[in-house]
Nucleic acid binder design. Structure first.
Length: 435
RNA sequence: GGAGGGAUGACAGAGCGGCCGAAUGUACCGGUCUUGAAAACCGGCGUGGGCUUGCCCACCGUGGGUUCAAAUCCCACUCCCUCCGCCA
């Protein structure tokens, strides 16, 4: 949620910044108007309430002095004022709710250096990485045997069974088997081991309350992309960011605890309602995938370094896996609701011949902290909202795809990179059954 | 799922419907004393919001209700603890 006080203080700045993301000026003016109305009504209601309280106090005093007539008179005056106060408060509540609903739909103010743009086509590619690049090697050329899409490799090697997945849960719910399932497990283990020295490992619930989903900004705006378990008023989490952000909801952290860094691997559920029919083949876009998330609560001063650390870790894993990737600076039009700045990592999939998003590293400023009410006590003794930063490292379904394509050999088998040897053991090379 | 008990400030723990935003203790911060420290003593010590910056308002698990007035009474819900049942 954006800062109402800031909107009051510098409305033109906020409006201009949000206009870059396509927020209508009239929407902001409406909010400014509601805020003014709210405060005016609030004053009136509070004035009445103060009077009722004062009269009530006097009633008690009169009773103690056995002044029954006076008490009776004060009571009836107070009763009348009380009725007025109730009505005034109802008006306050109505406006406050309206204001809050509108405010929840407003996205975060983008960082000044976020490039302008309408959609993902305007994202700015800042750099690429591939094996041997630092030694001057040219961008890799992929051989014909690497130009096979992972869904074909999956069937050929018996490690990805999309049909069974569809049979169980519908399309876009993948089922991995054998070495394919083990590869997925290995990737999570590999990443968590890499982070655990500096990030506390968390295993959160896979479902969250509505309130929890609100704190990250996934609700109310993206309702259609979330899986709902209506009977129990729960939602399937779309990312570990949701539980991690709310872990310290309504709490005040000590500045000495910051940055508080957490990591978690969870299943991530996404309905992909707006993407029906797009990129549906194989693992390009699925309803459920595993992802390791890195997360930090920090002070404003620590945010930049925390963001850089997460990005470096995500890149470090991609480099360790020897996958080609590129780094994108997301434009204003493609930024997630809650984010002030996001850097995406896209891995190159030679078999599909496309770049696939496998990480999104975001700085939310205090936008999520304001919703979740996560604060810290400063050295001066005051409280302030924390900044939240998070990023994937990494989302495994697409990594799985890029790995089996990149490391496919001419005989059709897949020889995975050595970093996975501790986890894959004797299955580092995946061959056709019976061959 | 059934029965009972509980939820108050950082923690512990009081609180006949009316000067209760809340006693007291501990912790914490400052001061006196001391060579220093401890002890003792003195003072301070919740979070938000509004505006005329001095005041006002809200918050005692959550949401309703009763009342001139609710931490205190009533109703519903949530969570925690104990016991029973079921169960990976």
């Amino acid at each position: 949620m954006i800062d109402l006080a800031q909107l009051r203080r510098e409305p033109e700045f906020v409006k201009a910044a949000l206009a870059r993301r396509g927020v209508e000026l009239s929407t902001m003016d409406e909010i400014i108007g509601l805020d003014a109305e709210h405060r005016q009504l609030l004053q009136e209601a509070e004035r009445l309430r103060a009077e009722v309280k004062e009269l009530s106090r006097q009633v008690g005093e009169a009773r103690r002095n056995n002044e029954e007539d006076k008490a009776e008179e004060l009571t009836s005056t107070s009763r009348e004022l009380g009725d007025q106060e109730r009505m005034a408060s109802q008006r306050v509540d109505a406006v406050a709710q309206d204001l809050r609903e509108k405010l929840l739909m407003i996205p975060n103010i983008p960082a000044p250096d976020v490039p302008d743009g309408r959609d993902e086509n305007d994202n700015v590619e800042t750099r690429r990485w591939w094996v041997g690049m630092d030694q001057g090697a040219a961008f890799p050329t992929y051989a014909a045997h690497q130009r096979v899409p992972h869904w074909d490799i999956g069937i050929e090697l018996g490690i990805l069974d999309l049909e069974s997945g569809a049979k169980l849960a519908g399309s876009m719910f993948p089922l991995y088997r054998g070495a394919g399932a083990r590869l997925l497990r290995s990737l999570g283990f590999f990443a968590l081991n890499a982070h655990m020295a500096d990030y506390e490992e968390i295993r959160p619930p896979s479902f969250a309350l509505t309130e929890t989903m609100m704190s990250t900004g996934h609700l109310p705006k993206s309702v259609d992309d979330m899986y709902a378990i209506e009977r129990d008023d729960l939602w399937a989490i779309p990312t570990a960011e949701v539980p991690l952000t709310s872990m310290n909801r309504d709490e005040i952290l000590e500045e000495s605890q910051l940055p508080l860094r957490l990591t978690a691997q969870t299943a991530c559920f996404r309905r992909e309602a707006g993407a029906a029919g797009r990129d549906t083949r194989g693992l390009l876009r699925v309803h459920e995938f595993d992802k390791v998330e890195l997360f930090a609560y920090c002070t404003p001063d620590q945010a930049e370094a925390a963001h850089a650390d997460i990005l470096a870790r995500a890149e470090g894993l991609l480099q360790a896996l020897g996958l080609t990737y590129r780094v994108l600076d997301l434009c204003t039009g493609d930024l997630g609701t809650s984010s002030a700045r996001t850097v995406d990592l896209e891995v190159f999939s030679p078999g599909v011949d496309r770049w696939l998003e496998v990480s999104s590293v975001s700085w939310f400023r205090d936008f999520q902290a304001r919703r979740a009410n996560v604060r810290y006590r400063t050295a001066a003794g005051t409280t302030a909202l924390v900044h939240t930063v998070n990023g994937s490292a990494l989302a495994w379904a697409r990594i799985w795809a890029a790995l089996v394509e990149t490391y496919r050999l001419s005989d059709g088998s897949v020889k995975l990179p050595d970093v996975l040897a501790p986890y894959m053991g004797d299955q580092l090379t995946i061959t056709k059954k019976g061959s």
